[in-house]
Design a protein around this nucleic acid. Structure first.
Length: 497
RNA sequence: GCGACCGUAGUCUAGUGGUUAGGAUACCACCCUGCCACGGUGGUGGCCCGGGUUCAAAUCCCGGCGGUCGCACCA
């Protein structure tokens, strides 16, 4: 669905909107979620919790968004998130200093080169602005991380985390020691990260505060093929786009391991679980792929990377980065903190390896909506609705009196209270025409609507309307809780009613 | 950061120097209403911010902020 349609719906129904929008000086890249938007967003996070954290027995934490400088010295962010840039004094264009030198001398510049060395190289080779041939400024560091100063005299230098996983690495030793399961041990976290993007864009797709739901699996690299539930997904087909292949291939997890498409069963298992999760979020399989990243595209610490992507009108959008980070992180923090972060199995100590599934919450939100939005012609009118799966819908059921008189609203309120008692998330509305109320809830993706009419007053039956088909069925009020529950968990389809 | 284009109610939009800034839709109130954005009456709500030019600026100029597209960037 075209982006405009989605953004218009989002702004019209206040799903999300710019932070501090009443101030002209508001910075770009920050977004507020309104009442409907936050329900959908929370549902995404909770569904992730249910399907991955709980079912896979992961340990969830909630870490601080502020971490000390030392953490990022150890993680490499102060080196690698720090890009050396030069600016043209004439046209003010910005360039990566190392890239300019590389182009000029046709030789690779390692990331370890200091600013002084880069400046010497820039001068030595008389490098000028590639666009206007103007004179370049001295190289300086542009850091993607946001700095915060802590303490009464603001003398402690900290940073807003640029990824949520660092907390998980820091917390690993404590959780591991108390763990009764041993390895592999999975730790999960949902929360905000912050990146000082040069050019935030396309609303939720490139933000400066970004929601992440991350899973880090710590495991013994010698036992990457010892996964207890592998048989459950052995025949499940992953949609992989490998480096050396043009097309997306459907390869079973078993075959992927056998043919060494992935490093081991543990990797295949988690790719499968992730793909299944997004399928359940309502993303069509044919729009899904795992794209293998080349060594140039991958982060330097990653041995193997699969980007989970979904096809939209904007092209393939990356929702999740799946990185085999090896022992890079724990090794770094062990060195930085001078603490032993090793694990022990059968008397042998080793640094666990990490496989990471780092999902963007807001990108997922955007793409789930993008895939759910439907526009249908009905005569001369157009109908717009969100075909969200029930788990992600802002409300599960709406309750309406057919007309706002003759005791119908009171009766409808009783039905609403009944359903609330049964813990359904419900919406009650008696204002305006019935058609308008249906349209309003269709637009925010409410799957079912219950309508109380004059027959209800006689025989205690109501109509249940299905959002996608607009079809209606009649049912007894007393049976509603069970019927709705069955619909919500997929034990009954609307057609079978 | 660069370049081009752009910024008028919640949303979409007319207005290119003097308008009570118009419309659609949404929203609110009342009436009507036996199932898909019904109809009627009434109503609330707007020129991104700052400076300049001018007797007069939503309109022209400059700057800021924001947006779209392209480039660059995105360990």
């Amino acid at each position: 669905m075209p982006r405009d349609e989605l953004q218009n719906l989002a702004f019209r129904r206040q799903l999300f909107f710019p932070t501090a929008e009443i101030y002209a000086s508001k910075p770009a890249g920050f977004w507020e979620f309104g009442p409907i938007g936050v329900r959908i967003r929370n549902n995404i996070i909770n569904f992730w919790r249910k399907e991955l954290v709980e079912k896979e027995r992961l340990l969830e934490i909630k870490g601080s968004v502020i971490l000390p400088k030392e953490v990022f010295e150890a993680s490499g962010h102060l080196r690698s998130f720090n890009d050396p840039v030069v600016q043209c004094k004439k046209c003010h264009a910005l360039f990566r200093a190392d890239k300019l030198v590389e182009e000029k001398i046709a030789k690779h510049i390692p990331e370890s080169k200091s600013i002084e060395e880069l400046n010497a190289l820039l001068a030595e080779h008389k490098i000028r602005c590639p666009k206007c041939k103007g004179e370049l400024s001295e190289a300086r560091l542009f850091n993607m991380m946001m700095r915060v100063l802590i303490g009464a005299t603001q003398n402690q230098e900290c940073f807003l985390r640029p990824e949520t996983c660092q907390n998980i690495f820091l917390d690993f030793p404590r959780l591991y020691k108390a763990s009764r399961e041993g390895l592999p041990l999975g730790i999960a976290q949902a929360g905000s990260s912050f990146r000082n993007e040069i050019a935030p864009k396309q609303t939720l797709l490139r933000e400066r505060e970004l929601g992440q739901m991350e899973i880090e699996i710590f495991f013994n690299p010698d036992k990457i093929n010892e996964i207890r539930n592998f048989s459950e997904i052995a025949n499940y087909k992953l949609r992989l786009q490998r480096l050396d292949r043009g097309a997306i291939e459907e390869i079973s997890c078993e075959q992927a391991v056998k043919q060494r498409v992935v490093s081991g069963k543990l990797i295949a298992y988690w790719l499968a679980r992730l793909q299944q999760f997004y399928e359940k979020c309502g993303i069509a399989l044919e729009k899904i792929r795992f794209r293998e990243l080349s060594s140039e595209e991958r982060a330097f610490y990653a041995k193997e990377t699969w980007d989970f992507e979904v096809l939209t009108d904007l092209g393939w959008i990356e929702l999740v980065a799946c990185n085999y980070r090896t022992d890079y992180d724990l090794k770094g923090h062990s060195k930085g903190s001078k603490k032993d972060l090793s694990a022990k199995e059968e008397g042998k100590a080793f640094i666990p390896h990490v496989f990471e599934l780092s999902a963007g919450i807001d990108r997922t939100f955007y793409v789930v909506l993008d895939q759910a939005i439907r526009k249908e012609k009905r005569g001369k009118d157009e109908r717009l609705y969100l075909a969200l799966v029930p788990q992600l819908a802002p409300y599960f059921v709406a309750v309406f009196p057919l007309v706002n008189k003759n005791g119908l609203p009171e009766k409808a309120k009783q039905v609403f209270d009944l359903l609330e008692d049964y813990k359904f998330s419900c919406l009650y509305d008696k204002k305006g025409s019935i058609g308008r109320r249906y349209a309003r809830v269709d637009e925010i993706g409410v799957p079912y609507a219950i309508t109380i009419d004059y027959d209800t007053m006689q025989d205690d039956t109501v109509t249940i309307r299905e959002r996608d088909t607009m079809a209606q069925k009649r049912a007894k009020i007393a049976e509603l809780p069970e019927i709705l529950w069955k619909l919500s968990v997929g034990k009954l389809s609307f057609a079978e009613l």
